[in-house]
Simulated scan of single mutants.
Amino acid sequence: MVTTLWARALVSKGVKVGIRTIDDTAGQVAALKAGQVDIVQAYNSGLLNYLDDNANAVRQSDVDAAIAAKLPAGLTVLQSTPARDDVQLVVSAATAAKYKLHSITDLAGHLSELTLLLTDDKSAKAFTNGLSNYYGLTFPTTKTTDFAGPKMIAAIKAGPSVGLMVASQYQIDDNRFVVLTDPQHLFLTENFIPLIGGKKITPAMRATLNAVSAKLTVAALRGLRKKVANGEGTFTEVADAWLASVGLR
C-alpha cells in the first residue's frame, strides 16, 4: 500500500513508474547500487540494523539520523512516515479494563491471569526472552497460534489473552483492541522510509515523496488497507482516492 501511494503520487506528476518486489534489505541495497531500481520501500529500524547491527537508536528521528550517517555513498533516504509497521502487544478492551492495562509494565501483576499468545517458530523464543530481559515478565500460561492472524485475533477477543499484532493492521481498530505502550522499547519502530539511489530522482520527485510520507499516519494506513481488503477498490484506486483527498493528486 505504501509503495503504491508513493508510486501513484509520482505518476500524478508525470513520472513513469514501475513496481517490482525485492523483499530483503540486502537485495534492495544491491539493486539500488546496481541501478536496477531507483527507490525502495524500507523499514527504518530494519534498515539501520542492516547497516549497523550494533546500533542502539530507538526513536524515529534518531533511527533516521543514524541511517543517514551510515548509508553507503550514492544512497540516501527521504522523510519517513508517521505510519509504521512495528510489532505491538495488544489486548481486548475488556481485558484492558478488567486488569487496568495501559503499558506492558502493567502486565506484571496479572501474569497468572493472562495467556500469552505465541507463534510456533523461532521468533517466539526471541519474543519471550525479550519480555523477560526488558520487563522481567514470564507468563506461566502460553498458547501457540498464528502471528497477528485470524486465530490470534479470535483468541484475543475470546478471553484474557495478550497477543502480537502489527501497527498497520486495521483489525486493531475494528476490534477496539488496546495497544500496550512499550516504554522499554522491546519492539523497534518500523516507520516506512524511501531509500533512493542514482540520479533519476529529481528534487521535485523528492518533494512529492516527502509530502506523501508526511501525511501518512497509522490511522490512514489502516483505513486504506481495510478498503482494499473489503474490495472497495484496487491498491491503485484506493491510493489515488486518498492522494486526492489530502490534496496530493
Results as ranks from 00 to 15, higher is better:
residue 236 T to V: 15
residue 237 E to W: 06
residue 218 V to I: 15
residue 232 E to K: 11
residue 220 A to S: 12
residue 231 G to I: 09
residue 219 A to G: 08
residue 210 N to W: 03
residue 237 E to Q: 15
residue 222 R to F: 06
residue 237 E to H: 05
residue 239 A to C: 02
residue 214 A to W: 00
residue 236 T to W: 00
residue 211 A to G: 08
residue 227 K to F: 01
residue 233 G to A: 07
residue 231 G to Q: 12
residue 238 V to F: 04
residue 210 N to D: 14
residue 212 V to S: 07
residue 226 K to T: 01
residue 222 R to Y: 07
residue 243 L to Q: 13
residue 242 W to S: 04
residue 227 K to R: 15
residue 232 E to Q: 15
residue 228 V to C: 06
residue 222 R to Q: 14
residue 236 T to R: 13
residue 229 A to K: 15
residue 212 V to C: 08
residue 216 L to R: 04
residue 229 A to Q: 13
residue 239 A to K: 02
residue 237 E to I: 02
residue 225 R to G: 12
residue 210 N to H: 05
residue 222 R to I: 09
residue 218 V to Y: 00
residue 242 W to G: 05
residue 222 R to A: 04
residue 231 G to V: 09
residue 235 F to M: 10
residue 225 R to T: 04
residue 225 R to I: 10
residue 232 E to W: 02
residue 217 T to Y: 02
residue 219 A to E: 12
residue 223 G to D: 03
residue 215 K to L: 09
residue 223 G to R: 12
residue 218 V to R: 01
residue 221 L to M: 13
residue 216 L to M: 06
residue 225 R to Q: 12
residue 214 A to D: 11
residue 218 V to P: 00
residue 213 S to V: 00
residue 239 A to M: 02
residue 211 A to N: 09
residue 217 T to A: 10
residue 234 T to W: 01
residue 225 R to Y: 12
residue 213 S to L: 01
residue 218 V to L: 10
residue 232 E to G: 10
residue 230 N to Y: 08
residue 234 T to M: 05
residue 231 G to D: 14
residue 231 G to S: 12
residue 223 G to S: 09
residue 216 L to N: 07
residue 224 L to V: 13
residue 238 V to N: 03
residue 211 A to S: 13
residue 240 D to V: 13
residue 221 L to C: 05
residue 226 K to R: 15
residue 226 K to L: 07
residue 239 A to Y: 06
residue 219 A to W: 00
residue 242 W to N: 05
residue 229 A to W: 00
residue 222 R to D: 01
residue 218 V to E: 02
residue 224 L to K: 14
residue 219 A to L: 05
residue 233 G to F: 06
residue 240 D to T: 11
residue 230 N to V: 05
residue 227 K to L: 10
residue 210 N to K: 02
residue 235 F to K: 13
residue 211 A to I: 06
residue 231 G to E: 14
residue 216 L to D: 02
residue 211 A to Q: 09
residue 224 L to C: 11
residue 238 V to I: 14
residue 237 E to P: 00
residue 215 K to N: 12
residue 223 G to H: 10
residue 225 R to E: 09
residue 210 N to C: 03
residue 225 R to V: 08
residue 211 A to C: 08
residue 213 S to E: 05
residue 215 K to S: 12
residue 223 G to M: 08
residue 227 K to E: 15
residue 223 G to Y: 07
residue 239 A to S: 12
residue 238 V to T: 13
residue 230 N to Q: 15
residue 230 N to H: 13
residue 225 R to H: 11
residue 210 N to V: 03
residue 218 V to S: 09
residue 221 L to H: 10
residue 236 T to D: 15
residue 221 L to N: 09
residue 214 A to H: 02
residue 225 R to C: 04
residue 216 L to G: 06
residue 215 K to M: 05
residue 240 D to Y: 11
residue 215 K to V: 05
residue 212 V to T: 13
residue 222 R to H: 02
